[in-house]
């Protein structure tokens, strides 16, 4: 306990702790939501239609009388999973494409980067829209669509880092020791770009949360009756004046989630 306190004292990184605090609080709520929700997330109750927040329903009820808090718990889980998977796809493919481009340069770089530019030319939401209209809706397809839309920005960041690293002496030195391309790319250079990658993953995660919310808001993300934060927002807009809490709470959670991760990213780059 004492060492933890000393560590905190030494680092005194407000951003990091605030971010970690907010994020873990939200994750805790989502985690509890797997095992226990006050009401079933799809349980309708005609008597509680658009009910205001009360002791029974701390965030109120929606237009079907479903408990908003229970749905938020489920929504965080969906949103979080989609964002995480999206960033995972984007990062993984981005590292593959970016490292090949940055490391080898030349023709593969030209070809892959032009494809990348073409993808980049579309806003990621629009690109995801196109992919979903090809694949159809559904959680997995949303993840795929957003993931693909996220590749170009990661590839670009990774590529420029590799371009920088590949000229450094330690890479030359390892090459002279006979290390092959794969070994150089993944064992020698990759650990050196982790700091940059980490903060872009964090920022990417935020964008993914917002993009998922956007897609669901447009009605092509998570399908009803499943809850996601964006979906709830989009359903809430017709009741903005009769039941403002319906929009307020999911929106607030999105803001907190993004804020938490932004602070976490900020704090990590400070470290």
């Amino acid at each position: 306990m004492k060492t933890i306190r000393e560590w905190i004292k030494k680092h005194r990184n407000f951003n990091f702790f605030a971010g970690a605090g907010i994020t873990s609080l939200i994750l805790l709520v989502a985690l509890v939501g797997i095992f226990y929700t006050p009401y079933a997330s799809t349980e309708m109750n005609a008597a509680a239609k658009n009910a205001a927040p009360s002791l029974q329903h701390i965030m109120g009820c929606d237009n079907y009388g479903r408990d908003i808090f229970s749905r938020v718990m489920e929504g965080i889980r969906n949103t979080f999973f989609i964002s995480l998977a999206t960033v995972a796809i984007g990062t993984f493919a981005g590292i593959l494409v970016g490292s090949v481009c940055g490391y080898f340069g030349g023709l593969p770089d030209d070809i892959l980067m032009r494809v990348n530019d073409a993808l980049f030319a579309f806003p990621s939401i629009l690109l995801a829209l196109v992919i979903i209209s090809l694949l159809g809706t559904g959680t997995i397809n949303v993840v795929l669509a957003l993931g693909i839309a996220f590749i170009p920005s990661f590839a670009r960041i990774v590529r420029s880092e590799y371009k920088k690293q590949v000229t450094l002496d330690y890479v030359q030195s390892a090459r002279l020791m006979g290390a092959g391309h794969l070994r150089l790319i993944f064992v020698h250079i990759l650990p050196n770009i982790v700091p940059v990658l980490l903060s872009s993953v964090m920022i990417g995660f935020n964008n993914a949360v917002l993009a998922e919310a956007g897609l669901s808001y447009l009605g092509i993300g998570v399908q009803p009756p499943e809850a996601s934060l964006g979906r709830m927002l989009s359903e809430a807009q017709s009741y903005l004046f009769t039941a403002p809490w319906y929009a307020l709470f999911p929106g607030l959670v999105i803001v907190l989630m993004v804020l938490g991760f932004a602070l976490l990213a900020e704090g990590m780059t400070e470290e």
């Binding site: 450094l168 002496d169 330690y170 030359q172 030195s173 390892a174 090459r175 002279l176 020791m177 006979g178 290390a179 020698h188 650990p191 050196n192 982790v194």
Partner: peptide, 20 residues
């Protein structure tokens, strides 16, 4: 390379991988 021929570089500050 590395087995029969090896090389020492000019800048010891950058010739080692900082993360290894």
């Amino acid at each position: 390379q590395g087995d029969e021929i090896s090389m020492i570089f000019q800048e010891p500050m950058t010739a080692l991988n900082p993360t290894m």
